[in-house]
Design a protein around this nucleic acid. Sequence first.
DNA 1: ACACGTCGGGG
DNA 2: GTGTACGACGTGT
Length: 891
Amino acid sequence: MIMKMQLLDTDYVIVEDRPIIRMFGKDEDNKTVCGFVKGYLPYFYVLAKTGKTADLEKFISSKPDVLNQERAMRRHPRGFSKEPVEMLKITLRNPQRVSEIRDSIKAHPLIEEVFEADILFKYRFMADYVVSGMGWIEADTADVNTHTVKTNKTVNITRLKPFESTTNTQTKYLAIDIETLSRSGGLPDPSEDEIIIISTAFYPEDKNRKSLVLTTRGANSDSVIRCLDETEMLEKLRTIIDDYDPDVITGFNINNFDMPFLLKRMEVAKIPRTIGRCNDKPAYTKEIMKNRVRVTVPGRVVADSYQLIKRNFLFKRYGLTDVSRILLRQEKLDVAHSEISKLWNSGDPGKITKLVEYARKDAELALGLIVKKQLLDKYIELSKLSGMLLQDSLDGGEATRVENLLLREFNKKSYVVPCKPDSSEIRKKEKEKEDQGLKGGFVLTPKVGLHADGLVVVLDFRSMYPSIFRSYNICPTTIITGNPEDVDTVKTPAGHTFVSKSVQEGIIPSILGNLLEERSKVKQAMKKETDEEKLRILDAKQLALKLLSNSFYGYTGYTKARLYILDIANAITSCGRHLIQTVNQTVEKQFGYQPIYGDTDSIMIKIPETDLDRGWETGVSIMRRINGELSGAMQMEFEKLFKSFLILTKKRYAAWRFVKENGAWKDKIEMKGIETVRRDWCELVSDTMNRAIDIILKRGDTKEALNYFNGVMKDLAENKIPIEKLVITKSITKSPSSYAGVQPHIELVKKMQKRNSQDAPGVGDRVGYVIIKGNQLLSKRTEDPAYVKENKLEIDPIYYVENQLLPPIERIFIALGFTKSELLGRGRQASLMEMMRAKPAKSNVFDGFICATCGNSYASAPLTGLCQCGGKMQIKTPTGATEKIVVQQGI
DNA sequence: ACACGTCGGGG
DNA sequence: GTGTACGACGTGT
């Protein structure tokens, strides 16, 4: 029988001391399949010291675990060489024993180098058979009977080859969310705390059911199953997973919380953890450095929507509340987690229902995020391109992807790949990198300030680093290190030498050629595509292609890479610097335009033109002239036109950009390096910054922006700013008493505990606070916003100006040429700061702080309670009298 | 200015 | 599972 399937996961099992590969996936009818491949064995290569191959052979044949060794002509991956050399290909029985045998062979004095002895067995297999994660295969199959896997079909695969198809099988998602109680008061601990509710949500729907909740209290219903106890609940969950049979298990922070917790509870309850697509291998978690956890469920993929969102969107906060509000416009149900145990233990059926629905909603939201935001698309394409399994595309970094691709392409041309460096080699490389250095891109010193007279044309090198690899044929396999051989070579401006493409094309240049060509094809196809679903996949593919091609440069300079070669990384950046500097000079000297800024692969050119259409034409002609001067391999693109441009420093700017869409100009503000949202800033800061930048860019009026800022300060001084805009949030990570230093939000928690220990926030909670007026240390003046409202307390405007607004706003106005005193309105008859200072809470005693040692004054005391000079703070009064402040020790 | 340490999400 | 493995931000020298 011939069968086609899309590959979701691969692993192997050992039967009679031999591996059997298992390929999990789905066929064209969306039936789940597991295909077994027998007879494939692990192997690696060794290179003996010159002339010692025969001696080495003798030694290796003495190893009982070695099934076979044969001589093979292979090419060394580092440095250009004309001919392959004779290596030994060592074949073994059991993948699990490879590392041991590798190490014993590696230590032998006859060894020059060992290659490919640390490739995961499944990836060794997939590379040899040219199959990719989420790729399709075509296989000759024979039916097989087994109870070890749970798939619809199980087959023995006798022949197998890749099959070209861009379609995807229907993905089934199951979201899981658990609720637990905690007896310690902090985060629950799976070794002693129980799970009380497990909610699940399905996409597509399961028998017309969107979600199903398991609970040990409350009433049954269509979508609620009441279980006797936690054990029954866990067993039921396993049944739900088996019955629904999802490809993807998701949840919010499922990798770091729900999954480890669930699996631990199953272990405690002695329930088999076989929630994957086989009966013989349980799901398991592995901790990687004390925070990150990797979850493995054989035959399925675990995708954490929290991690995906964190990697793909830039937000201030990544809690489920905020994320679903922004991305789904849906609200999480309102249950504070200190409420959970109260609701659970209330005995009130209505309250149990509330908790059940709360849990249900969380699972639905986690599911909604991944499905509606199509978070997997890009990773599916990355898998197809790099060969990685989807699970590994989700968890792994860029280096892993590059390496997988390199293994395949190197092997195709009979090159072998080095092993990963061990810790001592890494240290050596780090030292080398430290000593020699890796220089980055060239950054043109910006003409700081506002450019609103005329337009700014932005030109970019398209895929600069990948193109440099190609145009100089840069690759580990082409670099010439020692004496140049008698071959045709290319020399980079910085003097690195590579053999020319006509002699031998490098592997990386050839890979990049394919990736870049494929990307432009995809982009062409996107222009014609009308089907929304197909367009989505094309876009994901295009993004994946870009991501992958841009990873190669970083990879060569990454000390843990198999093919870390500092000279290559330096060759790339030096070519880049050379190119952009040449362009800069050409623009300035030959064309007479003024470059006002440029970074690595881009240049911003000011033109006197103010009309957008004519400015666009000028931009196009500048681009053409530059490209005329450049070699065909490296070309610039003109995509951006700014009507105004505010640059503060290198890497920090804001621009008013115009784009022509369907014949009409559309505008937007584009910012780089200017953060308007930050965790530790209150909303007023973001609002004020955005508004000020808007005024500066759109009106070109810096005075007006200054007036606006002064207005905000005035409102602040007059208490006219809504308190919600002044709330700063921080989270409590451990018990308040165990904090060594003084932290404002912790001081507030202590205060709240004294007032009402019931409602005070606990470990893991986020605390929102404001700073109120008073003559105490800053950290003692934190207050609960609700309490401030109730008791009509006044916020401290000086704090908000000096610690919140000023630092980011100052940077903007300084760039515009204002001084700090102009900014604060000093020099006018009544300065705003003076106004603020004029009426402190306890008016005539308090006038800020003064250092007892050096006499430095502060409007609000430094957090540490100490002056910059280390001296102690005293309260300054208008009369000059001072009183000592008790300073908290510990910071 | 730079290296090191901690925190995030979840209950 | 032939695997050693995040990033942003805040603090301290």
